[in-house]
């Protein structure tokens, strides 16, 4: 099928289940909230190297946050509960607690929870204060600026990572413009986030490598420079490929995000929209591209 003259390949994105948490970071203004958010998920692009994947879900107005300040909502995903128990306190402790004026709240209602404030409180060295309001416990940790307020436990739930689109463009300019359009479209979708820098990954990967110590390596089938050397997946005229990777709380959310992303990316200069998969060997969630419009 085609949209706006761009081919939608009959393939599928291979997504997989992960554990997700949603963090609400507030601050004195949006800029400080963004700063804390970037510090927290800046190095959370790929589960392969970062221990988790995370991205900004959206900005929150002051009417949407627990403490009435502007904020940012983040999604963070890990392979296992145990990883979440490590990653969340680590990232909130280093990324949010250190950042001026911020507070950090749980954004996910769930019976399954992991301790965040409950771990970070020890930073208070015995001076931390617990507050229980309406069934939620918060920790007030004294810091030089005043107090860092952080929720005791954060809800986690099964979620989906690995939703993706490959944008095959004629030129780097066209591919980038299409990717940017896709990103800004996807950012309007709830319950999803884009873990890679600017929402775009240029270094898509395949599983395995010729080196024993490396579990993933460059996705050579889509590297334009390797077209004659490998079994290339690139049609004629494609000189640049960019990938949009999507994580989301539900498969539905990922599907919505892929659809609006693909639609936005179908622009002049784009040859084809594809998706990355591993032959169905890794992920349990297979999202057929053409099904998105079915």
């Amino acid at each position: 099928m085609q949209i706006g003259g761009v081919e939608i390949e009959d393939t599928y994105a291979e997504a997989f289940h992960m554990w997700a948490a949603r963090l609400v970071i507030t601050a004195v203004n949006g800029q400080w909230a963004q700063t804390a958010a970037h510090a927290t998920i800046g190095f959370a692009t790929s589960i392969i190297g970062c221990g988790c994947e995370g991205g900004i879900e959206r900005e929150l107005a002051s009417t949407e946050t627990p403490d009435g300040r502007t904020g940012v909502s983040l999604l963070l995903m890990t392979r296992s509960r145990e990883d979440m128990e490590k990653q969340l306190p680590l990232r909130v402790g280093q990324g949010v607690m250190t950042c001026a004026t911020t507070a950090c709240f749980n954004g996910l209602d769930s019976t399954e929870t992991v301790s965040v404030g409950g771990n970070l409180r020890f930073f208070g060295d015995g001076f931390q204060i617990s507050k229980l309001l309406d069934g939620r416990r918060f920790w007030r940790i004294p810091v030089m600026e005043g107090e860092f307020l952080v929720e005791d436990r954060f809800g986690i739930q099964r979620a989906v990572a690995g939703g993706n689109l490959l944008i095959l463009g004629q030129t780097p300019e066209a591919a980038l413009a299409a990717a940017e359009a896709a990103v800004s479209a996807i950012r309007k979708v709830n319950d999803v986030a884009l873990p890679f820098p600017g929402g775009v990954a240029r270094s898509g990967s395949k599983v395995g490598s010729r080196y024993k110590f490396l579990r993933a390596s460059t996705n050579d089938a889509y590297c334009p420079t390797l077209r004659p050397l490998v079994k290339s997946a690139l049609p004629e005229g494609v000189n640049c490929v960019l990938e949009i990777v999507i994580i989301g709380l539900t498969e539905m959310a990922i599907r919505s995000a892929m659809r609006v992303g693909a639609e936005a990316a179908c622009r002049p200069g784009i040859v084809r929209i594809s998706a990355g998969n591993y032959g169905g060997r890794l992920g349990k969630v297979l999202i057929g591209l053409q099904e998105l419009w079915a």
Binding site: P66, D67, G68, R69, A103, K131, L133, D134, F138, R140, G146, E147, F148, L149
Partner: peptide
């Protein structure tokens, strides 16, 4: 001890 705007108060006052 000091004069400040405790963050947790925001939660309680709004409640």
């Amino acid at each position: 001890s000091c004069r400040f705007a405790p963050g947790f108060l925001q939660l309680y006052l709004r409640y």
